[in-house]
Nucleic acid binder design. Structure first.
Lengths: 174, 174
DNA sequence: ACCAGACATTCCAACATTGACAGGTCAGTC
DNA sequence: GACTGACCTGTCAATGTTGGAATGTCTGGT
């Protein structure tokens, strides 16, 4: 039930259309919670039905702008202050590492090197964003900046780990 | 389509029953790819139908042991050597950080401190596992060891980030 | 006046995942 | 001899997620 709350959170900042929200997902949010367009529009309809958001205006090209309601704000707040903290994550890229031993040593290290390279590239991309965005003191923007920094540190750690893992594989695999 | 490959990978090491595989998921694999029991049994049935695995023996209590077939090995290999590398991941815990600004500063920092604490605990758990497991030179075990190290480094990075983020929130949030 | 490309929404089939329920067997211990 | 806890499998409904197709509108540039 995270997507609905992600949408509520975005709308808590300011009203937006499905298309606007989609753009936000493609840029900043994609890093921690990817979502497709079809899912976003569907969820917006449900949230509207449930009274957590409402239509606050319409525009050209069939545009419909949604705003969060008081009920929506309450729901968002409840979600954010829930006691449980879900550290779980899924990574297909790491899952594959588990089975690298079924390949030859060369194939295995090639995979890890690719892993390192991709993380290095992502690191560069994120750092470029950090250094080029104009940081106002806006609270919502600060939160985005924290996540961005998480991505930067995470990518760096992943890259270093992949280099280390390549060495280990070279040393320990027959 | 990662679960089916995870099962193939585990069976590539040695034959196992659904129950055995479930245990492997609960312990090592849970870190990178959680799966429920219902999903595992269902997927095993499909893999068996598709000829990627086969029943290699039965035991007490209705136990059925599956082994990977040549077709299964080929499929696993193909998956592992696919060109695309999917770095995407989902984290509900990080998603919440995006919306911390809607809470008071105290509530926000409390969340991040909890985040730091949980990662510290996970770090301790993983280090304990690393230091207590008897590491033979077994290839499959080495792969598990690499992942474990990833978890350790990732937890450490996450904890440090959360401490840093707590400071930032304290400084920059009104 | 035309066109490309961004804007904007809707619908759908297929697949993945969760959470719960339901059933039964065997080994060791009190 | 009864009980507990680990072993072992199966199924279902509901929900979440993906990927694609279809449709139409407005804006800016040539």
């Amino acid at each position: 039930m995270s997507l609905r709350h992600a949408l509520l959170g975005l709308l808590a900042e300011k009203p937006a259309s499905g298309y606007d929200l989609l753009k936000r997902f493609e840029t900043s949010l994609a890093m921690v919670w990817p979502a497709q367009q079809s899912q976003i529009y569907g969820e917006l309809a449900k949230l509207n039905e449930g009274g957590l958001i409402e239509i606050t205006g319409t525009g050209a090209r069939n545009r419909r702008e949604y705003g969060i309601t008081d009920a929506g704000r309450a729901e968002l707040r409840e979600w954010l202050t829930e006691p449980g903290l879900d550290l779980a994550f899924r990574s297909a890229a790491l899952l594959r590492v588990f089975f690298l031993w079924t390949l030859t040593r060369e194939e295995g290290t090639a995979y890890l090197e690719r892993f390192a390279r991709e993380n290095r590239e992502r690191l560069a991309t994120l750092e470029a964003i950090r250094d080029n965005v104009e940081w106002t003191g806006d609270p919502a923007q600060i939160a985005g900046w924290l996540i961005l920094e998480y991505g930067i540190r995470g990518s760096r750690t992943a890259e270093e780990w992949a280099r280390w893992a390549t060495e280990q594989l070279t040393e320990h695999l027959p």
